[in-house]
Structure formats: C-alpha cells, structure tokens
Design a protein around this nucleic acid. Structure first.
Lengths: 244, 244
DNA sequence: ATAGTAAAGTGTAAAAAATACACTAAGGGT
DNA sequence: ACCCTTAGTGTATTTTTTACACTTTACTAT
C-alpha cells in the first residue's frame, strides 16, 4: 500500500458555478458521541489530503478532486502555498489532526489549488459523501487556516479571470451569452451592460456560436456557444495589458 | 541555536535590472580538491535555504535575500511551489545535498519567490561572496531543478508586469522614462514606440515627474520620475482587463 | 567657439474600443 | 389570446490605440 508523505498536503478550493451563485465544495465534518444526535464537534473544511510519497502534487490534487466528485480533466491550478508554523494551531485543529491519525505537532505544508467546474457536473451519487456545495457568501468559519486559503483562492481566481478566458470552465460545455456574462459578474462582483458585453465577446474568435438553442425555458430560447481552446491558443495575443 | 526544518526550503529568483539587461543573482558553487586549481565539481544554483522550524516562509525568503545582498524591504513575491518527487535526483544533486549535510533521500518542498531590485543596489562588499549577477540569457544549466524554477519565475514576473506596475521595483528610486520603457521592453521581450509609451504612462497619476534631471550623461539629460505607491493604491481601478 | 553626437522630447490623423442608453422578438405558461 | 420572461439588437460620443519624424539639449572632441 502506498504511504503518505506526512508533511506535504494539497488543499483544493473547488469552485462550482450555478445559475447566479459561486459555490465551494466543502467537507462536512461532524463527530458524534454515543447518542446519534450527540454532536461532539462539527466543522467544515476545504477538500484536501496528504500526498503519496511518490506522487506529484498535481496528481494529488487531481486525486482529491476525483475522489470527491468522480470527475477528471477538470481545470485545476496551483495558486499559493501555506506553511505558517502556526497554521494548524486553532482551538479544534489538534482534535481533528489526532482524529485523522496525523501528528498534530508536525509542521505541514499545504499547496493550494483551485478547481473550476459547473456545479451540476457533480452527480448525485457523489454528493452522497460528506461533501456539499456551499455558496461562497454563506461560508462561515472553517477549520484550520482554510478561510485564509479560501480567500486567497478567490483572489487568484479573480486575477486569472480578468486576464484569461477561464469563465468557461465554470459552465457546461454549451452555454448562453447571458450565462457567460453572469459568471463574470459573479466572479468579479460587478455588472456589465448586456450590449457592450456582447459586443466585446463577439470579437473573441474562440467563442463559437452553435446552431443550437436552449430548450425547456419559459421564454425566448437563447443561442448556445462553445469555447474553443484550440482557437484560443492560436489567436491569443501576447498582449501588454499594462498596469492601470 | 535555531534548527532548520529539513523538508521545507525557499528558493529566491533575484532579478536585477541594469541598463538593458535582466540579471539573476546566482550562487557559484565550486568544490576544489587537493590542488588549488583542481575543481571537483562546479555548478550554479539559485539562492535559497531551508527555513527555520519556527519561521514563516516569507521571513525565510527575506532572510535569504538579506544574507546575500544586505538589502531589506525588497519586492518579493511567492510565485510557485516545487515538490516533484524526483526534483533533486539529477546527476550531481546527491553530491551537493551530501556536501551540504542534507539528507539526499528526503523529499523537499521548495517554495519559490522572485525578488526585484536594481542591480546597482547590491553593493561591492556583498558581491564578495560566492554570488554573482548573470544576465538571464546567459544562464546555462543549473543544479537541481533550478532551471525550471527560474523559467517559472520569469513567467510569473511577465504576467505580473503586464497587469501591475512593478517595473519600478527594478529601477533606482528616481528614473527616466526611457529607463522605464527599457525595463518593460526587456521583461516583455518586445519594443514600444517612444511617443506612444509616454502618452500611455502620462495617464498614470502615480508616476510623479520630478523637478530634477539626469546628470553625468553626454547628451540632453532626461527628466527624472518617481513611482508613488500611495497614489497607486488610491487610484488603481479594479479593472476588468478581460481576456484577449 | 564650433561642429558633432547621442538621447530627450514632442503632435497629429486615423482606426479601434469603450461607454451610455431602450426597445422589439420569441417562446412557454395560463 | 394574453402575459411573462429573457434574448437580442444599434447608434452617437468619448477615449484609447496606433503609426509615424523632426527638433532640442547638453556634453565632447577638436
């Protein structure tokens, strides 16, 4: 059996977009005592794990993602590493570490990744685990230093989204322009004018209009679009955005 | 005496700009045998060190920077973490690790930082160490995985430079517009039209023109400018650069 | 003093992009 | 047939980008 490296871990901030919300996949940790309703302690954490001794960190992040969602090939990006000497020294942290059979005194490096996917891509059967989608703005205090990791993930996501077309990763393969606009409005916490937004994206050749329309909606169905990574790679200008 | 944490290290890619070159501060490692000119093995590495058991990673990076340059308050940014299981398994790596009294079989996480400063800010007395400036394009094969770390540092620097005003960090406190233009041309490996560049930066209020001119040049002396971080923080738009 | 030289500094016209703004079209639900 | 909801579209104005070449200034060498 493969052994874990007991001082390197990955934490994945799994973002999932849904209609008009940005969700994060959290692990619901509830320890019960003797009686069924007798909660000893409860906490939420990001998804994460130690890495195997011979595994790359990227592979470990993909493994965590797969174990919790059943998905592969998901957009995943390393954004920051957390190694503060006191990062696992909050009130309950010691309890959880002991409960997980980890050495609570060991200094653990956690390498942060964020993942992007459409909430509905995680199917019911996987949701049965002790894992759940929580809207970003409703996330309270998390165990360990996971609030800090989460904040940094959102900052990284924002910065990336401003300069590279990754909003698509949060949508199903086929999407409408209104959905795309909403993704950016939510990530960047702003609003765009519909006509100007469309004028702008119309210039991006990697946004492919399909001969297909939305179905099952109680209003004029919108045209569907796809993102073409190939066209993007070919046409992206290595632009000097300059500092503003 | 403080103990090192033997599995966490920082590597600093220290960029220094000079006239029309981007330099990197490298450690010259040459081991001699019995005779003085009898080189056993020689290599170059980035600057780095293990972190102390109770030290933050950022403090460790600043410490490395201080030990090698005597400078404090330098622009420093974490850009990526390297933890591949085989990252210290090249030909000579084992020799160096043993030579440094490190366990060659231990998997070591290295957290990468890049630092920006003006080459001339590193004074002669510090240069006496086994450390030297090497122009980026003249850097050959480095020990360990340091070429990979270096490449990633440059990519991170480029991306950052496109979207945030950090070119100033590579210049002395007072600089000319031509120097600023050169910095960006070198970092981004491109050329700008002088008039258009000036028109563009003229809009940035945090670029403060001084009532001072260059001295000691054999041509029309240029006006000097300063970067005002305060004005920048106040006036920066949280702009949607959008993806191109 | 004069001429040479090296980089500084400056303007304009044309094209492209950003901004502000409001109505009609289409389809499903009742 | 009517209503509800979202899709989809155009124009005028301002701002930004782009392409492009000559004059100015201070020092240097004679």
């Amino acid at each position: 059996m493969r052994k874990y490296c007991d001082y390197i871990s990955v934490d994945c901030v799994i973002f999932g977009f849904e209609i008009d919300r940005l969700n994060v996949l959290l692990v619901d940790r509830t320890l019960r005592g003797e009686g069924e309703s007798d909660i000893e302690f409860a906490d939420h954490t990001l998804t994460g794990n130690h890495i195997y001794e011979t595994e790359t960190v990227g592979d470990a992040a993909n493994r965590v993602l797969y174990d919790l969602t059943g998905l592969t090939g998901i957009y995943l990006e390393q954004f920051k590493t957390f190694a503060h000497p006191d990062r696992l020294k909050k009130e309950n942290d010691r309890k959880w570490l002991l409960h997980d059979g980890r050495d609570p005194d060991k200094r653990i490096v956690s390498i942060g990744y964020f993942a992007l996917l459409a909430t509905q891509d995680v199917t019911i059967e996987w949701k049965g685990r002790n894992v759940k989608w929580v809207p970003y703005h409703e996330i309270g205090e998390l165990a360990f230093d996971h609030n800090e990791i989460l904040e940094n993930a959102l900052i990284a996501l924002r910065n990336k989204a401003k300069h590279e077309p990754i909003g698509f990763e949060l949508l199903p393969e086929k999407f409408t322009l209104s959905q795309l606009q909403k993704v950016y409005e939510i990530i960047l916490d702003t609003e765009f004018d519909k006509r100007n937004f469309r004028k702008k994206v119309a210039r991006m050749k990697y946004l492919i209009p399909l001969d297909e329309k939305q179905t099952g909606v109680a209003h004029k169905p919108a045209r569907l679009y796809m993102f073409s990574r190939e066209v993007y790679e070919k046409t992206k200008k290595d632009l000097f955005d300059f500092w503003v």
